[in-house]
Design a protein around this nucleic acid. Structure first.
Lengths: 194, 194
DNA sequence: GCCTTAAGATACGGAGCTGTATCTAACGTT
DNA sequence: AACGTTAGATACAGCTCCGTATCTTAAGGC
């Protein structure tokens, strides 16, 4: 009898709880992010959660911290600027869509209360010394002779990612592929070549 | 005795309720947007609200509809495309900033709960047959011979407004003027002339 | 001045979440 | 094998909001 453990302890239990909290947050949003729902999903009881995270903010912060960088966006290197940026935007779309939606839903109250905003949070969370992906792509394209070597405003460089993020925020869904190609082919590449 | 009315009726009452609903939404967000809070703020009782708006969505939509277009964005006509669009973005910035911030802060929960999103809400609230302002500006510029008469993708036409909105969402503050001129001079005008 | 309408007060049961307390039994340690 | 720790179950009072029902009485039309 009892070949399998019936009770988890320590970090095993804690991991299971944070996994459950993450799922609840994704599925139900902040409104459904209750001790009750999370305990039920984790197969435990509320007192277990209260012992570890007395405030809901503690639990939310622990959950976000754990999953924030779980899916880094990959930067492709195809030998073509267009394929690079489209691939990059696709990766960002699939990897970041959930998290961005989450942030927009969950952290607005925090922003309002603290007086900070989205931009500042991004700056805080940005990995140190991480080269800007779009900048990297442009540098490569210039080296290949695909583009003239001329200075470009930050606003121009970051344009495709800003437009992707705008679309994500507006629809709160994964962005269709034709939006991505539209951003690149109708806006960014013509602008770079102007 | 009783020189003043003690009971409001019809549209007078309805206006007072929607005013109260708007205040509650601004101050407490969607989470606090309850029949209870709104009735209390309006100095009436919940049944009065239920008689008019059986669902909370009805009440929310009525409230948003009432205040969405309370400050229409003016479209300047200066004889120059650049001055037109910069003036327009400035007007939008001052007229829309607080309402857009409100929406982004307060309604994310609603969007998640209802499965709708910001784009769909905009479509619902958009005034019928209202000519697109940027489209109008471009048409004027073409008529003046400022721009060649050639078809332009919707994404290109709406670009400056999308970037302004993106900036508003990211910072949740009125946008500095150099951002507006940057959007126009570094991105839109070069793209239109490419 | 009468009469219909509807505002506003109050009450009700129900649902869901909160935060805490209590008890048991499974777990890891020694 | 004994022991201290703590997971997990359960219970509790309290709170807010829900949706509806009932009753009164003020307002406005005729």
């Amino acid at each position: 009898m009892h070949l399998e453990k019936t009770r988890r302890r320590g970090s095993e239990l804690e991991d299971a709880i944070l996994d459950a909290a993450w799922q609840v947050l994704i599925e139900l949003g902040y409104a459904g992010f209750t001790y009750e729902a999370i305990a039920a999903r984790a197969g435990t009881s509320r007192p277990v959660l209260y012992r570890r995270w007395p405030q809901r903010d503690d639990l939310l912060l622990a959950t976000l911290t754990r999953f924030w960088w779980s899916k880094p966006v990959e930067l492709p290197d195809t030998g073509s600027l267009r394929d690079d940026v489209i691939g990059f935007l696709r990766n960002a779309n699939s990897a970041r869509a959930h998290i961005l939606t989450m942030i927009s839903v969950q952290l607005m109250d925090y922003f309002r209360a603290s007086g900070t905003n989205f931009s500042e949070l991004r700056d805080k969370l940005r990995v140190q010394n991480r080269p800007n992906s779009l900048e990297t792509m442009l540098t490569r394209a210039v080296e290949r002779g695909e583009l003239p070597d001329r200075p470009r405003p930050d606003r121009v460089v970051s344009l495709p990612f800003d437009l992707l993020r705008h679309e994500m925020l507006m629809t709160m869904r994964p962005v269709p592929d034709d939006v991505i190609t539209g951003i690149v082919d109708e806006v960014w590449l013509p602008l770079l070549n102007s």
